Amino acid sequence: MAAYAPNVMPAEQREAAREDVFYRTRCTTAGGAVEPAQVVNISASGFMARSEGDFAEGDRITIRLPVVGSVAAEVRWALGGRIGCRFNEMIGLAPYLSLLSELVAQTR
């Protein structure tokens, strides 16, 4: 696992640019707890969400998304009711573009 530089925010270290969205969904923890979440940005490799769940760096979760269904991810950081996650497997280009189209349509 890569360490974060102390003076650099996690958002500045992400691998891919994210698209702003507004999508309410649920995250399921490895222990089976279901937590409401609001995805606020997404890329083919990960997302940031707001949630009142008790998440910590390294937690394994599954998030439900339109088009692609349930997607496994790892919490990379958690701070003040926000979590940054990386998908275990990057979403392919065609499914990601369809997902993004659906999320943007729901934001309007």
Rank of each mutant, 00 (worst) to 15 (best):
V68A: 05
T25K: 01
V71T: 10
E89H: 10
V68D: 05
A73H: 01
S70M: 12
D59C: 01
M1P: 12
I91H: 03
E35K: 05
G53C: 00
M1G: 15
E19A: 13
T25W: 03
G53H: 00
S98T: 07
R50I: 09
G31R: 14
V8I: 15
R60P: 05
G31S: 13
T107M: 14
L100R: 08
G92Q: 11
I91K: 01
L100H: 03
I63F: 00
A17D: 14
Q106A: 12
I91D: 04
V39T: 02
E19D: 08
Q38K: 13
L103M: 12
F22G: 06
A56D: 11
A37K: 00
M1E: 12
P6Q: 12
F47R: 10
R18C: 06
I83Y: 01
V40T: 14
G81F: 05
N7W: 13
F55D: 00
P10T: 02
N88R: 13
R50S: 08
A37L: 02
L65W: 08
A37C: 07
S70Q: 15
A11D: 11
A78Y: 04
R18G: 10
P36E: 06
C85G: 01
T62A: 15
A33E: 12
R14L: 09
Q13L: 15
T28Y: 03
A11C: 10
L97H: 11
E15V: 09
Q106H: 08
M1V: 13
R24G: 05
A33L: 08
D54V: 13
C27K: 03
V8G: 07
T28G: 04
F55E: 00
T107N: 08
F47N: 05
P66I: 03
E89W: 07
S51C: 12
Y23R: 02
R76N: 07
A44N: 11
V71R: 06
A3T: 14
R82H: 11
T28F: 02
S43G: 05
E12F: 10
D54K: 15
C85V: 01
G32C: 01
Y23W: 13
I91R: 02
A72E: 14
T107Y: 06
E15Y: 08
N41E: 10
A16P: 04
A3F: 14
A16Y: 15
E102F: 07
A56F: 09
R86T: 11
M9E: 14
A105Q: 07
R26V: 10
M48D: 08
A2N: 13
L65P: 05
M9V: 08
Q13G: 13
G58T: 11
I42Q: 02
P10M: 03
F55Q: 00
V104K: 14
S51R: 01
I42R: 02
E12Q: 15
G46C: 08
A49G: 03
R108C: 07
S101A: 12
A78D: 06
V8W: 09
A78G: 06
A30E: 09
Y23S: 00
